[in-house]
Design a protein around this nucleic acid. Sequence first.
DNA 1: ATGTCCATGTAATCCGTTACATGATTAT
DNA 2: ATAATCATGTAACGGATTACATGGACAT
Lengths: 186, 186
Amino acid sequence: MALAEAILVCLNEEDLSGYELAKRFDTSVGFFWKASHQQIYRELAVLKDKGWVAATTVEQEGKPNKHLFSIKREGRQHLKAWAIERSAPATHKDDFLLKLYAFDVIDLQAFAQELADRRLAHQARLALYEKILSKRYAAPKLTKAQTGRLLALRGGLSYERHWLAWCNESLSVVHEQLLAQRPAKA
Amino acid sequence: MALAEAILVCLNEEDLSGYELAKRFDTSVGFFWKASHQQIYRELAVLKDKGWVAATTVEQEGKPNKHLFSIKREGRQHLKAWAIERSAPATHKDDFLLKLYAFDVIDLQAFAQELADRRLAHQARLALYEKILSKRYAAPKLTKAQTGRLLALRGGLSYERHWLAWCNESLSVVHEQLLAQRPAKA
DNA sequence: ATGTCCATGTAATCCGTTACATGATTAT
DNA sequence: ATAATCATGTAACGGATTACATGGACAT
């Protein structure tokens, strides 16, 4: 389990509230780790119990108060120790690709539609990553922390390009299949 | 949840025991869906209760008996209905990539080692997929079911190539960092 | 002797998802 | 008016992981 560590790496950058953390898990860190706000609030309580993070309440006007969390020395030590250990192999779970294994059973029209939507989603993600690349990593000299995040971003860019290309190829294959199924029906 | 469907697509191909299914989840289907034998045995019991699969006991000599499972008409109907619905977005979880977000805190030597191991793993996977491609999909005319699995395989090939390239690039960046950290220490 | 493969399961625990709950502010 | 954003949580449930348990066959 690495939810704890995913939270700690965020707090290592800057102090954040549970709500703000939840937003990070929709974008940056969320590329490798998904988590809902409920999970995050629960985990923050655990981390506080362990003494890895500290909490302070920030009073705000016109908005609810925030509980700001910051990483403690113990938390940083834990991160270091965790990073030395071998990571568990990545888990992939994708229902959509599973459908390819039942290709002779499924409705190809619906599949093609979903594939087209995925293509758009990968395109959008790719555009977002390219924007981040040009806005945040254009400087000639990067800090160590930035170097790490740039490597992650490059992984993301390459990942999106690969799936985008795959979607394009696969769409043409599926369309061929659809034509072959109903020859000259118009 | 798509463990049920992951099992059903396997049984749609051929009858299998829980043990044999578990092995599929280490290779073919396992590319999109990971599951342990414990999960599989439990889920098979549920599927049998629902009437989507049937079980028969096969007596064997010198080996324990098998419980062979086969998909029923109701199971195939369920697969069809499931495939029309939109899939949940894929979940990615990778502790290793998370480490990139704590690049200024972690031990780069250990990270480089792990990265090198990942490179080898991607290389091995790629070689495996290339072998499957040439052995099983060399025929000029493929069945519909084969076409689906070929698309999945192409996804896998492209995926491994992309991560392999990323590992190579990243290794050189990490090695540069290591040299910069200890300038002329030999 | 030691380990891996075949083959199946139970039990406990932990993690993740869904649903419920509140309430003010700001934008359309 | 309606919806989205900010901000926090609880409760119930369901899914996934880890540990435990068994036992013969076969290879090194």
